[in-house]
Design a protein around this nucleic acid. Structure first.
Lengths: 343, 343
DNA sequence: CTGAAAGCGCTAACAT
DNA sequence: ATGTTAGCGCTTTCAG
């Protein structure tokens, strides 16, 4: 592969001129410019980005770590991030941690070696040491979703506790008493918060918190299916279930149907995330929405603020706080219940 | 950030020794080894991968280009690719082309600059020139899905024509005559092939090919919705629709339901891809399955064969040919029809 | 087992 | 407007 020296030689100019043609076109005479360009084409020269980044100490690359590429929620976030990165002239590396703390740490290690200019961590599982390790390298960091191990740092997050609370409260308000919860993987803080919201709503309304009504799923469709099956084996089945994400809610719906039960008549369901498919399942899913695309957008903007202003010096931190909202559809039985109440 | 020289100096050894400690541990005495390692830790030294790649002319990185990160089909492929890359010690860059030829070309340009060791293109839209451009750089290339502009080259592909054929044929066999087709974006060859299969089945059975029954969607849920709406406005509505992918099939189902029509009683649906959600919509979707994860696996294996054996010299090409299979569920009305026929 | 030094390809002063 | 050259941080001969 041709390099910049080959081009310079063939064009009869210095490497500096070739470099200028590529990076500062206005500082070079039109004639040489044109000629060098023609040689570049002739030689099929493609500048070596590694060398460039090395010389500039800048990769124009950021990385986004997400727990699961099969969850559309994260893909929405990714789109938001990519869109702003692209506008800024940055490339973004999408890394799938599969909810594994080790994979996450490994990726970060690799990304530091690659000298990415910034890092966005989604639903991070990192422990204190690992976070320290990142901070020591001077890589700009933004988190999506809180990680208890970073006290200071820029973060975009949704109030998951509130989300769990409003979901559960709504179920209570329309008359359900035996409300179960299919929790997401508990190693994720957001799931602990959703559960806390669930319990808070229960307590506030003097409803008992029954351990048997709380079962953990693996965040995927199958996990919701399995968890629901477990719930359905209880002698005293729940009347409603608050599920920690839509994917699991889909699985739960499938499980409930497979037992010949109806939704919401026999069991009501509320999900979390409001991914596109949630409006397409039968019955349409009542769910707590969070603005995924916007979360991506905002986190990327935050990141570039820091990168460009160089104020990632442990000084300026921003927290962007998003409100979840309940999206009432069919699966919670809202209509039926309200009709009942007023009749 | 500390570099290798800082470490060498502090440890009182040469940079070569530090490099050896990291890359050829067995060629260095245990004593120095240990000491150097301690200094590395103390200084928080992280080797610069850019410099390393530059020196070695090897990035240990491959890239996978896909048309849409919101389509689970591609995410399954991505998992397959990542799994084998990871085992080989490679990182994989996931690039979302959003079905844009320009974005695809731009990504490739960037990836060549970054000197990735290999490239996997999924449902590529590249034209002859662009393909030539890649071949001129010495980057190993594997395609998932045929691109008519590459005559020679390694490729993993599904027989989409056959897929379209078996889907349509099945509808014909269970008694439908007015069969419509919601095609995917026609700039993608696979969609042309699916449609060809559809037409072939129709012709073979002396059924007319009615242009009004063929409408193009944008490959996403919404596209399927819109296309179905169009079909439903026809005075003579179709009895069945073969939809070019599951996502659009979901949209079509939604559209049909929203008109108060039943599936499959009023209109039958067959999709394509067999993504996980297709078994969870109501009614469960009959669809043509293709082994996405395996496609990712195989394409990556092919790529590494070439990378490691260096036989990407325009010589050795492999084509891996996958058979689609019909997965019969509820949406095509198979049961009802068979019952009818035998009664 | 270890060190010295050349080189990977590029950029940016500094000169001219 | 253009050329010369010293790095950027690493790996790897080649010597010892």
């Amino acid at each position: 592969m041709a390099n910049i020296r080959d081009v310079a030689k063939k064009a009869g100019v210095s490497v500096a001129t070739v470099s200028r043609v590529l990076n500062h076109p206005n500082t070079v005479s039109p004639t040489t410019m044109e000629y060098v360009l023609s040689v570049i084409k002739e030689l099929n020269y493609t500048p070596n980005g590694l060398a460039r980044s090395l010389a500039l100490n800048k990769t124009n690359t950021i990385a986004l770590l997400i727990p699961n590429i099969l969850n559309p929620l994260y893909m929405e976030i990714a789109k938001g991030v990519e869109d702003v990165a692209h506008k800024k002239g940055y490339n973004t590396l999408l890394c799938n941690t599969e909810e594994s703390q080790k994979k996450e740490a490994d990726y970060i290690d690799m990304l530091i070696k690659r000298r990415v200019d910034g890092l966005i961590l989604t639903a991070s599982l990192l422990n204190k040491e690992e976070i320290q390790q990142i901070k020591k390298q001077d890589i700009t960091l933004v988190m999506i979703g809180k990680n208890k191990n970073v006290k200071h740092g820029s973060v975009v997050f949704t109030d998951y506790m509130l989300g769990g609370y409003i979901a559960t409260k709504h179920l209570i308000e329309i008359g359900y008493k035996r409300i179960a919860h299919i929790s997401g993987a508990v190693h994720q803080i957001e799931n602990q918060e959703k559960r806390a919201g669930y319990e808070k709503a229960l307590k506030e309304n003097n409803l008992p918190i029954d351990k048997r009504y709380i079962v953990e799923g693996n965040n995927e469709i199958e996990g919701g299916y399995l968890a629901a099956k477990k719930l359905l084996q209880l002698k005293c089945k729940p009347e409603a279930i608050f599920v920690a994400n839509d994917l699991m809610a889909f699985g739960a719906i499938d499980a409930i149907k497979s037992e010949g039960l109806r939704i919401p008549e026999d069991i009501a369901i509320v999900g979390f995330d409001n991914i596109e498919m949630s409006a397409l399942v039968e019955p349409k899913l009542t769910t707590v929405s969070q603005p995924a695309y916007k979360m991506g957008l905002l986190s990327a903007r935050l990141l570039f603020d820091h990168i460009e202003n160089g104020d990632d010096e442990e000084h300026v931190h921003q927290e962007i706080f998003l409100q979840p909202k309940l999206k009432v559809r069919k699966s919670c039985g809202h209509e039926e219940r309200v009709r009942e109440i007023f009749s």
